[in-house]
Computed example of a mutant assay.
Amino acid sequence: MDIRQRCHLLIEDLSVARGERILLDGMSLRLSAGQIAEVTGPNGVGKSTLLRAIAGFFPLGSGRMSWVESEATDPAPLAERLHYVGHLDGLKSSLTARENLDIGLGFLGRDRRTPLEALDRMELAHVLDLPVGYLSAGQRRRVALARLLIVDRPLWLLDEPLTALDRHARALLKTIVASHLEGGGLTLAATHEPLGLRGTVQVRLGTK
């Protein structure tokens, strides 16, 4: 998959409910190749829900999502075009950084990089064979974010990506996201802290 082709994500009047509780109501967004949308708003307003709904973890109550690849004659499902990194790291503490990333390599498809290559870009090559339980919170977060780099996918869904990162690691992540956008990728970031990247689309939930 070449993320440099022209891609678009279109969300129209999206609503998500759990039982009788409405988690997200009437959300619309168009995101094109090279764009990042920062989703902000008070706690509990539906930022994480939006990302999880796009990733396919929640069924849609109403509305629709469309994924368009203008150069693809038979585009893959949206789930095969995205990476999702939640606000929790989702790592197994007893496994090494290499082993945790190998789990992702097992089902993420082609255009692969090795765990060493991905960790090297996150400046963590030296922890490759350490159990992640021995790592600091910031290092664990960078290992989780390294999943973005092991397989090329055009859409990145990031839930509070700056959590636990120090100033240097934040700058590193911003550089990596900027490179993804420059290559034609798309990013949605649910965040309380802006990434400050050029051309950011602001999506504020909880306001009428």
Rank of each mutant, 00 (worst) to 15 (best):
Q5A: 13
H8W: 09
H8C: 15
L9P: 04
E12P: 00
D13P: 00
L14K: 12
S15A: 15
S15M: 08
A17L: 03
L23I: 07
L24R: 04
D25Y: 08
L31H: 05
L31Y: 03
S32W: 01
S32Q: 13
G34K: 11
A37R: 03
E38Y: 04
G41C: 09
G44Y: 07
G46K: 05
L50T: 07
L50N: 01
L51W: 08
I54K: 05
A55R: 02
A55Y: 10
G56E: 07
F58S: 05
L60R: 13
G61I: 00
S62R: 15
M65T: 13
S66C: 10
W67E: 02
V68K: 08
E69W: 06
S70I: 00
D74C: 06
P77D: 02
H87N: 13
G90N: 06
L91N: 07
D102E: 15
G104W: 05
L105E: 06
L105M: 13
R110D: 09
R113P: 02
L116A: 15
L119N: 08
R121P: 02
L128H: 11
G133S: 06
L135H: 04
L135V: 03
L135F: 05
S136D: 06
R147I: 05
R147G: 01
L148H: 06
L148I: 11
L157N: 05
D159C: 10
E160W: 12
P161F: 00
A164F: 14
D166R: 06
D166W: 11
R170G: 15
L172W: 01
L172I: 02
K174M: 14
G183I: 00
G184L: 04
L186V: 03
A190R: 12
P194L: 13
G196S: 13
T200L: 03
R204H: 14
G206D: 13
G206S: 13
